[in-house]
């Protein structure tokens, strides 16, 4: 069973993973898409991209997304790693990718990725998930729809309550 869940038009579904996560010590496969650490991307990315390979970069929480600004248009995806589910830095990183760097490609949550945080991830711009628990598309859909409203703007397209109020919505 595939591990990857992607949001397609906001709807979660299992997806085949076209990328192979290549650890720094692993040999580079001869073909196919790869996900590299930032260090390895900086060393070998140029060559792979020149050869027409699909390349994604995996960022640890301490590696600033701004460092990718130049390369973003050439990247096939960005993976943001959660070493622990409690480490919240990647929520800011995803937000910056979407809002400041204008990145529209795949942002994938990898590492200690759990269901109960997934709604916040989606709100911050993640659209692909490798869950570390038993979450499937149905569960993901459930947790991302259990709140009817949001109080604040984020990197998603949800309308905050203060705007809904001005439109005179809700059954008040």
């Amino acid at each position: 069973m595939p591990k990857l869940i992607k949001l397609i038009d906001g709807r979660p579904a299992w997806a085949e993973d076209p990328f192979l996560a290549v650890a720094d010590e692993d040999a580079m496969p001869g073909q196919g898409g790869v996900i590299l650490s930032l260090t390895r991307f900086q060393a070998e990315g140029e060559g792979l991209l020149a050869a027409g390979r699909a390349v994604g970069v995996r960022l640890e929480p301490s590696e600033a997304v701004e460092g990718l600004a130049y390369d973003l248009p050439r990247l096939a995806m960005v993976a943001l790693a959660f070493p622990k589910f409690r480490d919240g830095r990647q929520y800011s990183q995803a937000t910056l990718l979407r809002e400041r760097l204008g990145y529209t490609g795949e942002i994938r949550a990898v590492g200690d990725v759990l269901r109960e945080q997934a709604n916040y991830m989606v709100r911050c711009g993640f659209d692909a998930f490798e869950f570390n628990d038993n979450t499937g598309p149905e569960e993901l859909a459930y947790v991302t729809h259990r709140f009817r409203h949001v109080y604040q703007r984020a990197a998603d397209d949800k309308t905050p309550i203060f705007v809904e109020r001005m439109k005179g919505g809700a059954d008040a």
Binding site: F85, R86, D87, G88, Y91, S92, T95, Q117, N119, Y120, M121, R123, C124, F147, V150, Y151, Q152, A154, I161, F162
Partner: peptide, 14 residues
Amino acid sequence: RQWSTFHPEFSYLP
């Protein structure tokens, strides 16, 4: 209060 409630970016602070 409203802004900070379930803020998706700032709910897993250091």
